[in-house]
Design a binder for these strands. Structure first.
Lengths: 158, 158
DNA sequence: GAAATCCTACTCGGATATGGAGTGTCCGAGTCTACGTGG
DNA sequence: CCACGTAGACTCGGACACTCCATATCCGAGTAGGATTTC
């Protein structure tokens, strides 16, 4: 899995506390990561429609939906792509003992197991929203976290 | 996910029907894949203890356990490695609003979601055994598949 | 005929090149803000 | 005092290098089997 997924999720959580657009540079500073690379991730989130980009002097990024309507799965798929990790190359139809094409209408057992596992994985990611992530962080670091975040995001930095 | 996982699984299913060691070259011919690359996958299966290698003139590979005692997860982990896809870099402890180390004894919400999803994925793969895969293939291609495989694997080829 | 020996051929195992995707970076196009100016 | 125009600076967006891992391959170490030779 791409490492940028973690950054993107953290950014979504931070944007939950934002009331005005937050530039990519500020999000990068908040998390102490490479600004130029984070910009790429945010770009992908923008393409996926999860965040809205505002151009101009006081521009930046903003969530397009309430945090409880953005699932972790959506963020992951925005960065890593929506395609499944396993791709069946139809090995059963190759070689000297190849199965007849008409007996291969349904995916083979191997592919089916992989697809089911992939489905279970996605299901687990779909169950959790960005709002849940923020709530968890508040539980660990104190309920004032949201306000602290908002304050830091909106304040002007040297 | 590594594409070799598919090959390895097909090989395990084929080895289910084998009564004597099957060389890597024959398995490659059976599935019409690159012999030298398949050899690497079988080597990893051997390292993981799923198959036993027999050297010498009529050597090859053999399952070390009954097929109903080999889960798909074991094969996947043998090829792709046992480590989880997601690695938490502890972003929460970095930057100007870093969380205090003592409040980070438990994994953060993001990591937890990822680990749970990973667990669900592995659980789904653990439920299915190589024997199940063979049974499924027999259901699709006919019950004589196992004998056909054994015959082809043991016969001498040009 | 049987046993010991040697040779051959075949097997796996690890070390070795290559390609593509992920990683990381940069600069240009676009646009909002703010200031200055004129009425 | 207000409206307008212009300049400026800041933003995102896409195009451009680099690195690392998955892919693909090869050759050497080791061994079982069989043929040969000898008793």
């Amino acid at each position: 899995m791409s490492g940028g997924v973690e950054w993107a999720l953290h950014c979504c959580v931070a944007l939950t506390a934002a009331t005005e657009p937050v530039p990519a540079v500020r999000l990068a500073e908040l998390h102490d990561v490479s600004p130029s690379y984070l910009a790429k991730q945010l770009q992908e989130l923008s393409r996926a429609g999860l965040v809205r980009s505002v151009q101009g002097k006081s521009g930046g990024y903003l969530l397009t939906r309430p945090a409880d309507q953005i699932t972790v799965l959506e963020v992951v798929e925005a960065i890593d792509g929506p395609s499944a990790a396993f791709v069946c190359t139809e090995v059963r139809q190759r070689g000297p003992l190849a199965a007849s094409p008409e007996s291969c209408t349904a995916p083979c057992g191997i592919a089916r197991v992989m697809y089911e596992a992939d489905h279970a994985w996605r299901q687990a990611l779909r169950r959790v929203t960005v709002a849940d992530l923020l709530a968890d962080a508040e539980r660990a670091q104190g309920p004032q976290l949201r306000d602290t975040l908002r304050g830091w995001l909106t304040s002007t930095h040297g």
